[in-house]
Design a protein around this nucleic acid. Sequence first.
DNA 1: TAAATCTGATACTTGGAAGTGTCAACTATG
DNA 2: CATAGTTGACACTTCCAAGTATCAGATTTA
Lengths: 215, 215
Amino acid sequence: MGLGEDETVATEPDPAGTVVRPYRGVSALDRIALRRRQLLDAGLELFGTRGISAVGVGDVCSEAGLTKRYFYESFQSIDELAEAVFEEVRANLMVRVAPALAAGGPSDIRLAVDAYVRAVTEDPRVLRLLAFETSAGPLAGHRDDFATNAVEAWFALSGHQAKDRDRNRLRAYAFVGASTQIGLAWARGELSLSIDALIDELVELFENLAAGVVG
Amino acid sequence: MGLGEDETVATEPDPAGTVVRPYRGVSALDRIALRRRQLLDAGLELFGTRGISAVGVGDVCSEAGLTKRYFYESFQSIDELAEAVFEEVRANLMVRVAPALAAGGPSDIRLAVDAYVRAVTEDPRVLRLLAFETSAGPLAGHRDDFATNAVEAWFALSGHQAKDRDRNRLRAYAFVGASTQIGLAWARGELSLSIDALIDELVELFENLAAGVVG
DNA sequence: TAAATCTGATACTTGGAAGTGTCAACTATG
DNA sequence: CATAGTTGACACTTCCAAGTATCAGATTTA
């Protein structure tokens, strides 16, 4: 809200975005939430197919079937929308992987890798978002955060005391970088391996790397 | 107006960019080549520090000490300049790595990795160009070409008959992806390993991967 | 010296996207 | 029905960078 707008008298309680009463049976807050959802969906669709840099406010609005005015109701910029879309994708991934990680435990990482690979590859838009769009632009750096968090989680589970943090992190980066690059090639159809074979490879890679870390 | 100037008689052989006679003791062709060089240098500097997407024609011209007119003398767009800059970087890298690869041979990849890592890390701009800028934007996909070429070269040297191309390529991607991600973290100063330790790690990683390929 | 070419600075036109404003039609409230 | 909130369409202003044109002064050539 505006800070010193004009909350003077009682005759003007809502200066800017009038958000008060129901419309077509939907409450004001629900309508806003609904539109925000439409924008997030449109964002995932466009970012995940054309790439973030090729998408403008107008594009998102067309895709969502809304007008600019409602874009700025929920977001201040395309980058802010990209952040929100990515955050949602990340959260969904976590929900799918975390149980598998807990179930498999640190000595058997296969379940987690399996869950992760299947979750990522089943939606090309998610794959593109993770593989392509986290290298440059507004989402730059998020891949590293992602990697760091994942490795921290794994460390926490394994009870491993990091006595050589830098080597560990290097290997974590190696795994994330390798996975990403492979996923990228996979997304373009350059690898005809089955998903199972792909998972086997990644598990093997992880175990090679982890052996060096733990040992 | 450029078109119907006054090419009346046969005395006007050069319609557009007048490129004829020496100036300040430099021939016309040399002047063009010189300006092209200035633009390439400016491109590497700006692309390698700010990132391609943050650089416009005007920026490059300022950095090069030239005006737009001379930009369009040698390039048609920023993307075309980016291509040329990348190609030059790639060629320089090849020059440094190829001899080491030939000397070490397929069984001892250390020399090649050593040369590659040192070449890339000694110029932060090159590192950034390879690690960041080949993921999105005009240089997208070049990392894969790079990887493919490198692996093909290595295969050629090793005389290895690829009977399982997809697995080989997957591992090639794994190595390139891991190297890139690590280089990226290194570029940001997140890894305090010495270059020697870094090289050790990468050699070890490569040997793990190559063992699977050859064996 | 006169004519032609070359250079660098700068003005200019153009195009696209961001962000804001207006308005007529629609819906809830009393 | 009258009033006020709500919506979508679209016009509008602003801004920025691309790309083009102009011009005075410097340099070469005849």
